[in-house]
Amino acid sequence: MDGQDCCGDVDIDVTDDGGCCDGNADATGSERLGYDADDVASVADGADLGLGCGNPKAFADMTPGETVLDLGSGAGFDCFLAAQEVSPDGDVIGVDMTPEMVSKARENVTENDADNVEFRLGEISHLPVADATVDVVISNCVVNLAPEKQRVFDDAYRVLKPGGRVAISDVVQTAPFPDDVKMDPDSLTNCVAGASTVDALKAMLDSAGFEAIEIEPEDESTEFINDWDADRDLGDYLVSATIEAQRPPRDV
């Protein structure tokens, strides 16, 4: 039932050897993902679980007054960074399907004095967000976990205002997965086996109606991706990418 439930019904396991769902929140870890030290320092401890694979803030070009939606907001780190960008008049909404994560994120609202950030329990292919209300959809290493990615992109398109955009960091597949990866039940929840190819993602975004679709693999990400698994070099067939697209300014 919860095939996309990456971090699921467990507390974050910091004892395992890596993977997107294993906390690695030391500063070095987050800086490898593309955050700078100021980003890490600007958010109170507890929100940065080190679970992403990039930094959507770095390419989302958020401006004051915008409304931002974070798909799979976790403990809220990317939401709090976004809130700094869109303050004082903008709003940030984080949606996550895991009660433990939303509770943690809500506690972090107080820690960060971020009264323009709201979290709700929800599922990213059934977004509880009204049509054409959002300027930017961000997400960090979550869409790969969704079993119905087309629905995720369709719903993201629906909630975006005309001219709105997506700025997503996620893993993409660069080569066929070895059989042992495909057969490994942990491989889906560890943000590996659910990854799509760049071409498949482009086709889904195009089908949803997006234009100006740009997916850029970040080659240097293979370094931290290789650390996600002690036994395999996942970077041989997986890379983190920036995924950008725009809803056309006027519906055609």
Partner: peptide, 18 residues
């Protein structure tokens, strides 16, 4: 509950309180 709206589709909602 606890200030958090639970807008999961009903079939994904946990019935038991956390």
């Amino acid at each position: 509950e606890d200030g958090i709206p639970n807008l999961l589709p009903p079939d994904m909602r946990e019935d038991a309180p956390a």
